[in-house]
Design a protein around this nucleic acid. Sequence first.
RNA 1: CGGGGCGUAGCGCAGCCCGGUUAGCGCGCAUGGUUCGGGUCCAUGAGGUCCCCGGUUCAAAUCCGGGCGCCCCGACCA
Length: 480
Amino acid sequence: MSEKLPTRSENYAEWYTQVILRAELADYSPVRGCMVIRPYGYALWENIRNALDRRFKETGHVNAYFPLFIPMSFIEKEKQHVEGFAPELAVVTHGGGKELEEPLVVRPTSETIIGYMYAKWIRSYRDLPVLINQWANVVRWEMRTRLFLRTMEFLWQEGHTAHATAEEAEEEARRMLDVYADFLENEAAIPVIKGQKSEIEKFAGAVRSYTVEAMMGNKWALQAGTSHNLGQNFAKAFNIRYLDRNNQLQYVWTTSWGMSTRVVGAIVMVHGDDQGLRLPPRLAPIQVVIVPIWRQDVDKTRVVETAHRVAATLQEGGIRVHVDDREEHTPGFKFNEWELRGVPVRIEIGPRDLEADQVVLARRDMPGKEGRRTVPMAEVLSGVQVLLAEVHQSLFAQAKRFLEENTHEVSTYEEFKEVLATRGGFIRVFWAGSDEDEIRIKEETKATIRCYPFDHDGSEGTCFYTGKRTTRVAIFARAY
RNA sequence: CGGGGCGUAGCGCAGCCCGGUUAGCGCGCAUGGUUCGGGUCCAUGAGGUCCCCGGUUCAAAUCCGGGCGCCCCGACCA
């Protein structure tokens, strides 16, 4: 393996790509714009999936699977939806050697086909709510792609629910946004800002879109998850109706919400440093790597045996552990490699430790001596458990501090442009502009409204762009 | 789709201007030895449609024409 990564400050995009390739999270595929998720990356995704899936089940959802192919006419039924997705559809026109009567769209998202099915299944208020999630791949024909952040095919979950009332649908959309925020903060150690999308940025076909926005290491924003209140738009397009208690025919109210393999990119960019990945302990495929150290063959046998015994102890304690007993590499090489791959805790075991009946614990989030300490052999499991929890807290605290330190408030457009050009980050402003104003700002500065944050206390201020008084606050940033 | 860069061993590159033996270097890989508490060192070895098609020439990785592909930067998006 070649030695140094490019640093984040000299070339952030290159650093990002190199970390992913060299940590073996993913690789490029022979098809442009697609990627192969390698075992290490997929193990990370599986942990993400399990943590999310558990939360979905806890909130009353069940999983199902809807087909990959969608009749073209379905996509066209909801006006905003087709306008939003038409440019990025992959369309199948031939099958079995013959041209199809109606082209099939490879799903870019499944609102339409699920809407069609819901219309079949829902008859009465007693059938509601319907709370279904699916884990699937989707395809969007993208011009410019980037590993995990934007690929033509990606994996995700999409929740689709139907409710009897507008209030219930709104509650559901907000509840699932909270689930995403909870997942990101408590599993991925990523602090987020919850808020509502602007009209310009909302999902094609939604009444309202909600988002959790995270700040990447280069201070750009990334939408890590979204939740939409679809109102009755899809209910009307697909005729999803039910009889209420008064025997009145009513349209249902639907929601949808999704989180994708893009969060892997967020984990890379939020926590990574110039040595490589720093994986949040609860999601890391390998939480602890044990590197045995020996000088002579007599030591080797004892040390490697001890390493495996320690591994067994940790494994019984529910820790995901790996012993790196390869003979062809020196310990120093292994330290660097596992740091690149982001393993949160490393255990070193050498002859000195055997004499002292101890091991050395090193934490990934603290370089050098500072992050290293010895613990008695008997306390390995508890020591590791405590340390993993600490690493999680420390990653979260670092990311949170970074987010706060790079969130700025401005009161004029001049100041806005100045801050964007010099410091970057999130800019929090009072906002009373129009859609046109928003688009103009985007054209002039590349910054977009990431969200209207929920945490605004409702106080009134002056819009930095129009000078009007308003209680609305927006967060602007450059975004992926 | 616009701008830039690039296709030579698995990866990164040199050679190309100025055509001429057997196409080279580093990493990686294989074997043996050595080393091992922060990217060991040595030896030997395997590995090539020089992106593709056509042309010029006694002779093309090298010159000419056409194509294809990839990466980076800009307008759309989870």
